[in-house]
Amino acid sequence: MDIKVNVREAPGDCYVVDLSGEIDVYTSPKVKDAIGDLIDRGVYYLVINLEKVRYIDSTGLGVLIGGLKRVREHGGSVNLVCTNPQIKKIFDITGLVKIFGIFESEDAAMKVA
């Protein structure tokens, strides 16, 4: 059980955070640190790619919500890339589909970042 985090620069002022593995109460601090570091550096447009995430719980959602709150204070955005039905289901039942932009591809997520 682990999470891999890869951060890369994208066109414009946008950064992509690739996550791979499971985001739970054990691994979410690592994700929180990666997102927090970007925001501390002044990056307010984020695309978080969840394509290789097999599992996410409410602590992971809490990290994403925290990141979104911070970037919105600067007029930024957090868009998610997610096609896994199990992951999308968690966003559906918590109503977070209305808060985040959730896209089928990275290109689509970056177009509105």
Binding site: D57, T59, G62, I90, I93, T94
Partner: peptide, 10 residues
């Protein structure tokens, strides 16, 4: 607290 509440909701 908010995250914990989200967990129970889930």
């Amino acid at each position: 607290a908010r995250t914990a509440g989200l967990g129970i909701f889930v």
